[in-house]
Structures are given as structure tokens and as C-alpha cells.
């Protein structure tokens, strides 16, 4: 994708977001300059409570910016009448359950409100768009089900179909994957990325699922607790150490060498692990989980494990050697020892 061929679907300049509390304003982020381009899938990342939802709500026009302007398709957002606005921007929020005995088809058809007449009757064109939307998220078979009876993942798909039915250029999604299990999250993310690319949608999705965002997003916006917005390609941000700044906490560290977070960065005890393959990887993960650091060398190791294939773990501890047939037995043994009295 070359940047020059893209058009800006949504831009915001000198945008300050936050809440007006009486005369005082509580700023969450100031002087943001962002643009969202047609056909790109951007993930908005940031720790909980940093103001991702506020940014999305402001960009969607549900909340006024404290200063600055949001522009869509070249005109100021506040100047666009509500019905026109609804044809330009659609949203998917975490709160997805409608009330009443509503089937999925009816829910998706509500997305046609910006186009339908006084009483909301659906034209042939409306119906075609609704059916296309169901197909686009792979939820055709859900159309006649009651929304209240759908699973979280199914309901989220229907919710996205509803936003698609609005036929907008820009779609903003606030944590749509929050309550889903991993396969459902992966499915949803790939559906969204494909939609952005194929339909030339400008798609912004907020999430705190960094791992998944790294795999699917075209670009990252990272909102820091200080109210800055870091923008760039996922890999560039991952390598730059910005993640470390933004997400680091007492018991979690960003490990750029493996592209994921690592718990317990300061273990009290080290264990030496030798060996390759899946068995060695999961052995290291088990040790990290139990609070051990892993080393390759022999220095300061409380014990050493030689992983040999999938069925043999040789543990050397206090001068004695023990063999284990499974990782379960190994973990049981590690947990049964009293490591507080180990003298290094």
C-alpha cells in the first residue's frame, strides 16, 4: 500500500479530548493530530482507563472535543446534520444487547435508518445491503435468531453487520473483542481487516489485546497514560520500546525479542534449561510462571533441566540427578520443593 494513493477519510487536528465538569475541564489527551485513511485497519492501543473510549466517542461525534476539530470527508463533523453523519460514520460499542424481542435481521436493519423514510420501511436496496452485511461477517444463518439468545461472539458479528449496513466510509469499534475467546477474537479481527482492505473502509478498533493487534493491524495508535498518541507501523512501535513505556508495570515487562509481555521480570532464583523444541519452550514458560528465571549458562542456577525430546526431563539438583517422564511430574516436583532455603 502506498500512502499517496490513499485518501483521508477522517482527520482530526489539534484535538483535545476529555470531559467538561462544570467550569473545569478534565483533559485526557491534548493536541492530537490523527488521520484515518480509507482501506486501512488501525488498532488503538493503550492500558485500561487511558481514554481509548473517550477518543473513539469523540471521533464518532458522540462527545464534543474540548478543542480542535474532527473532519470527515472534508467537512467539520459538528456541522453535519445527524442523518448525514450516520451515513459517514458507524460505531460498534461494547454494550451490544438491544432490548426487546429483537431478531438479528431487525437489529441489522436498524443500520438502514439513515437511508429509510419516516417509518423505517425497507426498500429492495436496503434489504440487499442488509443481506450483504450478514454475508460480509459470515452470519447469514443468524439472521432469524433472537439477539438475546446469541453468544457474545455471534452478537458482536451481528453488531458489526449492523454497522456495515450503514454503508459508511468510517467505522469505529470500541473494544469489540473484549468478551470473546481467542478463536472468536482471531476470526473477528481477520473479518475486520479483510473488510477494511476489500471495501476500502477506514476502520479504527480499540483493544488492549496487543498480541492480536500486532498480527492484524495496518497501523497502531498508542495512547499513553500521559495523553500522548504514538502512531506508526506495529513493528516499528514494537521495536522502539514505546510499549515498554506505555504498558510496563511492576510485574510485567515488554520483551521485544519475543514480541510479547513477560511476567515476573525479577525472579529470585534461576534455573538452567537446555534443549530445543516445544518441550523446552513450555518448560521455560512453566518456570517463569512459577517465578523462576531461566538461564542458558550455569551461573547462579538453583537447578538445571535438560529437556530431551517430549518424554524425558533430566533434573540436576544438589548434586543428584532425577528423571521425569512428563512435564506434569516435573512441575509437581518443582512445587513440592522448598526453595526458600536454597543457598546460592
Amino acid at each position: 500500500m502506498t500512502k499517496s494513493s490513499q485518501e483521508n477519510a477522517l482527520t482530526a487536528g489539534a484535538l483535545s479530548i476529555g470531559y467538561q465538569q462544570g467550569a473545569a475541564a478534565r483533559y485526557i489527551a491534548e493536541d492530537l493530530n490523527v488521520s484515518l485513511e480509507a482501506g486501512e485497519f488501525v488498532c488503538l492501543l493503550g492500558p485500561n482507563g487511558v481514554g481509548k473510549s473517550t477518543l473513539i466517542r469523540t471521533l464518532a461525534g458522540m462527545q464534543s472535543p474540548l478543542s480542535g476539530q474532527v473532519q470527515i470527508a472534508g467537512s467539520n463533523f459538528q456541522d453535519i446534520p445527524p442523518r448525514e453523519r450516520a451515513r459517514l460514520v458507524s460505531v460498534v460499542l461494547t454494550e451490544t444487547a438491544p432490548i426487546g424481542m429483537m431478531d438479528a435481521y431487525t437489529m441489522v436493519s436498524l443500520g438502514r435508518h439513515p437511508y429509510s423514510g419516516r417509518f423505517g420501511s425497507l426498500s429492495v436496496e436496503d434489504r440487499e445491503r442488509i443481506e450483504w452485511s450478514f454475508d460480509a461477517v459470515g452470519a447469514r444463518d443468524l439472521a432469524q435468531r433472537q439477539v438475546a439468545e446469541l453468544s457474545d461472539g455471534e452478537r458482536q458479528k451481528v453488531s458489526i453487520a449492523r454497522a456495515l449496513a450503514q454503508a459508511t466510509q468510517v467505522m469505529l469499534l470500541d473494544e469489540p473483542t473484549a468478551f470473546l475467546d481467542l478463536p472468536r477474537r482471531v476470526e473477528l479481527m481477520s473479518i475486520l481487516r479483510n473488510l477494511a482492505h476489500k471495501e476500502k473502509l477506514a476502520l479504527l478498533l480499540s483493544t488492549h489485546d496487543l498480541d492480536l493487534a500486532l498480527r492484524f493491524a495496518d497501523r497502531f495508535w498508542v495512547l499513553t497514560p500521559e495523553g500522548q498518541l504514538i502512531q506508526g507501523y506495529p513493528e516499528a512501535i514494537a521495536m522502539s520500546g514505546d510499549f515498554a513505556k506505555v504498558f510496563a508495570s511492576e510485574n510485567l515487562d515488554w520483551d521485544a525479542s519475543v514480541g510479547s509481555f513477560r511476567a515476573h521480570p525479577t525472579p529470585c532464583l534461576n534455573a538452567k534449561v537446555s534443549g530445543n523444541g516445544a518441550a523446552a519452550l513450555w518448560t521455560k514458560r512453566a518456570l517463569e510462571r512459577l517465578g523462576f528465571g531461566t538461564t542458558e549458562g550455569h551461573s547462579k542456577a538453583a537447578f538445571s533441566i535438560a529437556v530431551q525430546g517430549q518424554a524425558l526431563w533430566q533434573v540436576e539438583h544438589d548434586g543428584t540427578t532425577q528423571d521425569f517422564d512428563s512435564i506434569t511430574e516435573l512441575i509437581n516436583w518443582i512445587q513440592s520443593q522448598d526453595w526458600s532455603i536454597v543457598d546460592l
Binding site: 458522540m62 445527524p82 442523518r83 450516520a86 460505531v91 454494550e95 437489529m107 436498524l110 439513515p114 450503514q166
Partner: peptide, 19 residues
Amino acid sequence: IKPLDALLLGESYAQSIGT
């Protein structure tokens, strides 16, 4: 009738579809 249908989705969604 139409805005009432929209309100079933909740206030935010109703606004987002132009209500």
C-alpha cells in the same frame, strides 16, 4: 415509530444511526 426502534439499541447507538 422509527426513533423508538432506534432507542431499543441504547442511546449511543441510536445517536449513531442519526436519531
